[in-house]
Write a protein that binds this DNA or RNA. Structure first.
Lengths: 340, 340
DNA sequence: TTGAAAGCGGTACCAT
DNA sequence: ATGGTACCGCTTTCAA
């Protein structure tokens, strides 16, 4: 009774050598059996002995040792931005992770903690990822790409506003969204357009190009575009609403549906009629927009799905030389409801 | 011109041996210099030569080789549930990741893809994580914990509804939330309480205990509690609203603010007065609740922060024998606005 | 101050 | 059908 109750108290992690010893075979044989190596025939009794020994010891292979020997990993590195960005985006990331898991990759999220692009790339390269998938906002320079590729990355894929030299870069242009919003407002006859610019740090990566898109579309048509900074907070919205009439705007593109809801409420509380006095359009087509009164017009964004992107990663990993994808990654389309 | 333009075209990843060769020193010296090993003095000229050689070759150490040698990793494994669960939760996860990064851990998200608890634990153990942090909903059995600990995990921490044998488990009780909501409704004099149960798969992990909490509090006080399944979708909400009066309820706890908004809109469209005919309370204290009319009463949830949890992980890793944390991890408090 | 060498845990080639 | 063994890249005694 005073003895070790179970072998589970053993303090050492069993290795394949332990399994081999217990089964009375060599480490090679253990490896063959446990990996079902096709190129070698092992007798059924031996297989059983090995399996039982492994089971009994609770043997678990050591991923690092394995990939050291193999010379490559199945790690897909996902550099992560610090800011959490909306329900749409986090759903996308989640989807992506699961799709990658399903393809048997190990997903490593890796924030770069204020390291500059190249130092970050070096830190990532230490893990010898087979692929790096950089999703917007993360600096990745051509040199960084070089480092990663030299360290064995088969696929370096960026998803962002511009092409990155050396990487397989999917250009997703946020300007499209602002452009569709502006286009819609113009069609409805509005000419003095405000554009909400979230003050939350990190979002400028999205808001700036959206503003630019709105400008590109509106200004040539003779409309004016005015950026309006706004924090995601009731007080800020009320303050903006209080000076609204002085701004002389007849419409506003509110970055996304959440900011639109915030602003719309403040405007309504100030007695500003929507859409009569000011039209409001959001983006993302969230359910909440349909629940507002008036129902919120919005820009629906069709992003590439996580599944699709995971497949792309896999394809590039298998055939790094393949031609870069050139599909459109994002479609955007205005949806008229009642607020415009 | 037809030659290799830069050394970057070399196909092999430089190792510390390459650096040693170029610097004219041994691999040991390279290791000493690059790691600033304190226990050994290397002359300044040598240091420089090594550093320059490393720089020139673009040397990046191999994390797997290092941790194989070291016998341990800095990996914190985060088993991930498939379902994305609300803005609060994803913010929490994000915070946690960053806090762990700041403490120099490598965060690996790992979905278990339909493996059962023990098989999943085995898969996780392959990575030899120094810590495993299981956040609710992920099955982790006592045997799984054993496997992980034997594989070298210093900390196996679970955050969930119940204690897991062998793990350092932080019990966070979702019932508290339902209980606070019910308590608030009772205080305001309501007695026939509906509880919205999201139909989205995965959320039952949260909604069931919240319902149980509401029951525990309401029924002893002579109130009735009626669960009401609802999909996150306008049509479903309208259908529920259409049969609302037949249900004979005077109040409803709507799982969280988002479902509350959905339901409230449908009830209002049906001409049901809030709170006069039916009171509504949500949970999570999202901004959107304050933007509704009437303003939405809610249950504010004070979860442990990501930073705090990361510190706990670090503490347990450093001192695995330490006494289990016993702080309350979640506070919940009803916030009255206008909908109750 | 520096170098030689053992060894971490697997895998796969070459013998037997 | 199985075993011996070199090797993946790095760290860390131990000697010189």
């Amino acid at each position: 009774m005073s003895q070790t109750p179970r072998q589970s108290a053993e303090r050492s992690v069993p290795t394949s050598a332990d399994v081999a010893r217990l089964a009375g075979v060599s480490r090679a044989t253990v490896s063959y059996v446990l990996n079902d190596t096709a190129s070698v025939r092992i007798s059924e009794p031996t297989r059983r002995r090995v399996r039982e020994a492994a089971e009994e010891l609770g043997y678990v292979p050591h991923a690092a040792a394995r990939s050291l020997r193999a010379g490559h990993t199945r790690i897909v590195l996902l550099p992560t931005a610090h800011v959490p960005i909306g329900p749409l985006y986090s759903r996308f990331i989640n989807e992506l992770q699961w799709a990658l898991r399903r393809l048997d990759y190990t997903v490593v999220q890796h924030g770069s903690l204020g390291l500059d692009g190249d130092a970050a790339a070096r830190a990532w390269a230490e893990l010898r990822p087979v692929a790096v998938l950089s999703l917007g906002g993360i600096a990745l320079t051509p040199q960084g790409v070089e480092v990663l590729k030299r360290s064995g990355a088969k696929a370096v894929i960026t998803l962002g506003p511009q092409h990155v030299d050396g990487a397989h870069s999917l250009v997703v242009d946020q300007r499209e969204i602002g452009s569709r919003a502006a286009e819609h407002l113009l069609e409805r006859g509005y000419r003095r357009i405000g554009v909400i610019m979230p003050e939350e740090p990190g979002l400028d990566l999205f808001s700036e190009p959206r503003l630019a898109g709105a400008r590109q579309t509106a200004e040539p048509a003779g409309a004016t575009v005015r950026p309006l900074p706004l924090a995601y907070d009731e007080g800020a919205a009320n303050a903006l609403a209080a000076r609204w009439r002085g701004l002389g705007l007849d419409a506003v593109y509110a970055y996304n549906d959440e900011y639109a809801m915030l602003l719309m409420r403040a405007l309504q509380d100030t007695g500003i009629g929507i859409p009569d006095e000011t039209a409001v359009i959001g983006a993302d087509d969230l359910l909440l927009g349909r629940l507002l009164r008036p129902r919120l017009s919005t820009v629906r964004i069709d992003m590439v799905t996580g599944e699709h992107l995971a497949e792309l990663v896999d394809r590039v990993v298998r055939d790094p030389g393949g031609a870069p994808e050139r599909r459109d990654l994002m479609g955007a389309e205005a949806v008229r409801r009642e607020s415009t």
